[in-house]
Design a protein around this nucleic acid. Structure first.
Lengths: 357, 357
DNA sequence: CTGTTAGCGCATTCAG
DNA sequence: CTGAATGCGCTAACAG
């Protein structure tokens, strides 16, 4: 005799452990044991239960388990904008790394708004997530206290520095310095910078500018503020207009350090629209080593921020904190601070070193 | 006398409604009423409760509420790859639309794997989400039955067609036809296509090829299979090698329809590397109208798929299903099928119509 | 308007 | 190795 047909009408009437137990002729506890891969279950019992599960199409009710366990297996990732390749890349890597550790990721774009970033921190989702990977763009040192939340958090970026939370940073100063020095070595003497944020003391823009200045100073080259072009946003259109501004001013540089690849792409475009050659007339270096950089014409030399390591370490540390274990290499009571090494990816938007004058 | 200091050591010991109730001198139900903005609560009571909430730093325990309510307020979005601009854009829009309706989004990249796509459908997260927006790439018509799940789902894309689930599609045939016709009108006679998937009957590639053929036929132009270049992946590098293949074959086209903007960007690069001019020697049209398309050199004419509408409608329909209400314009028992209109964004990679021979 | 009570589905003591 | 009973925090009847 066939079984009673399932009523699929509402998805609320899913079978429960009790149903499975009943059908398998065992207790709820046993079903739970099987579901959670408890070691000591007899083979026959396990089989019976698994069959019942199969037949009923049972799946564990995650919210119920969450309630019982006090955690959700979900972490949040707060980033400014998912459509920026840098953050799309980061998100993708974080999701991948999290999955390896059995964690799910709630991506939360804060959309360049201070309020959005604050909400990601204090929003009504605390109890919904076990931890947060937090990449603020609008917050500053004045907001350090805001980071004092009741759940684990790993800070990304270079807007805020504090000893009180785990922090995975990237080599901004070093990267910009490396880029600038490389241009100098390849023969550039008048190097412009695109994407500065005047007035800011912290954040990638400020740090990258510092690296640029350091390289100049080391090489004994003068710093000319007219060669630094501010740009709040770092989209391609901004790079284009910044470069045009520069070219219009009559101050034609022989090298450009753009603070990300999209700015660089815009600059490339602007330069070539004027009939100038890259890298013969002007060399260009970008930041982020985005996937696109190799498909620009010419392909773009760029600083690679080691995003894979950022994602891996962030998730790892957060997972450790959630589990209450101390991350590797951290003293008790201390917090992780790690700067992921950045590397220079040399392509065709810069002159080779052998070609210097 | 000051209050007992909170022990922040573990974030597991959060205050509960009971604590709030006790402190405010009311019952749990009343606290619940206040928290959920129940209408009939006296002003003074509400105030007392709110104060207690403030003092204790209470936040509702979402998993507990979820368990009670039987839903989570979360939907999943399954896409092939978050680093593809098209899907990053889509995800961003879906998250935004979902937020408007009080829904959270779990983004799940299926990474071009059939298994990944199946897991998104049947994985152990059923009970964790209220619904799914599903954009499969690997599944085909043989998998229609797989879509028969116990929770609401909105299907995206053109891999599977069935009357049994809500489906938001895009104008693939129409878009490709429009692109091809435009090239013909602008004077092209030997139009190549990049990115076909030979052997596939369904999916964007097949549909776009159909549109291409229709346009050719309408114009009385012959179809030459040597002008259709297959490419499984649609990254820039694929567009570049496809275009090179074409150029190497000696069959130089005067127009190219690339099946997405990245393929088009690669093609642009390859063409220009040979010293050929776009659009003078070869016109190029892309698909997706990605943000990048306007910053290529030359800026790329592209078919815009109306992603904003796709996101809006998908979320809206899913929300309706979750709430058990019938989406607008659908008969009882029927399902939504909607094709979002696509439009041609004309830029500089194609010759203007006035410039035809 | 507010208090009391009973589960939501699960993991987990504690006995067998 | 397995069964019965308890409660995670919350909401929804149902009384008052």
């Amino acid at each position: 005799m066939p079984d009673v047909s399932e009523k699929d009408s509402m998805h609320s009437s899913m079978p429960t452990m009790k149903d499975v137990a009943q059908r398998a002729g065992v207790s709820v506890k046993t079903v739970s044991n099987v579901v959670n891969d408890y070691e000591f279950v007899s083979g026959t019992t396990r089989q019976k239960v698994n069959q019942a599960i199969e037949e009923l199409g049972y799946v564990v009710n995650v919210p119920a388990r969450n309630l019982r366990l006090g955690h959700t297996g979900m972490i949040a990732l707060a980033i400014p904008d998912l459509t920026l390749p840098y953050f799309a890349q980061l998100s993708s890597l974080v999701i991948k790394e999290a999955k390896k550790l059995g964690l799910r990721v709630l991506v939360e774009p804060t959309l360049y708004s201070r309020q959005g970033e604050l909400e990601a921190l204090h929003g009504s989702q605390h109890s919904m997530i076990d931890g947060l990977i937090y990449s603020p763009l609008e917050l500053g040192m004045g907001d350090v206290e805001q980071l004092n939340v009741s759940y684990p958090i790993v800070l990304l970026g270079e807007r805020i520095f504090t000893r009180d939370v785990d922090h995975v940073a990237t080599e901004n100063v070093e990267g910009a310095k490396r880029a600038t020095s490389y241009l100098i070595e390849s023969g550039c003497r008048k190097i412009a910078v695109i994407g500065t944020h005047p007035g800011e003391e912290l954040g990638s823009a400020a740090l990258r500018l510092t690296g640029y200045k350091q390289a100049l100073e080391e090489a004994g080259l003068p710093f000319d503020s007219r060669l630094t072009v501010p740009s709040r946003m770092w989209h391609r259109v901004d790079g284009e207009s910044a470069m045009n501004e520069l070219l219009d001013s009559g101050l034609v540089p022989d090298g450009v350090v753009a603070f990300n690849d999209m700015l660089a792409a815009g600059a490339l475009h602007a330069i070539q629209m004027r009939g100038l050659k890259v890298p013969d007339d002007i060399s260009v270096i970008g930041f982020d080593n985005s996937e696109d950089s190799q498909y620009l014409s010419p392909s773009l030399t760029s600083i690679s921020p080691g995003l894979h390591d950022v994602a891996h370490l962030s998730v790892q540390v957060l997972k450790n904190r959630i589990d209450g274990v101390r991350p590797l290499g951290v003293e008790s009571g201390e917090h992780v601070f790690c700067k992921i090494a950045s590397t220079l990816e040399i392509r065709n938007s810069t002159r080779p070193l052998t070609q210097q004058k």
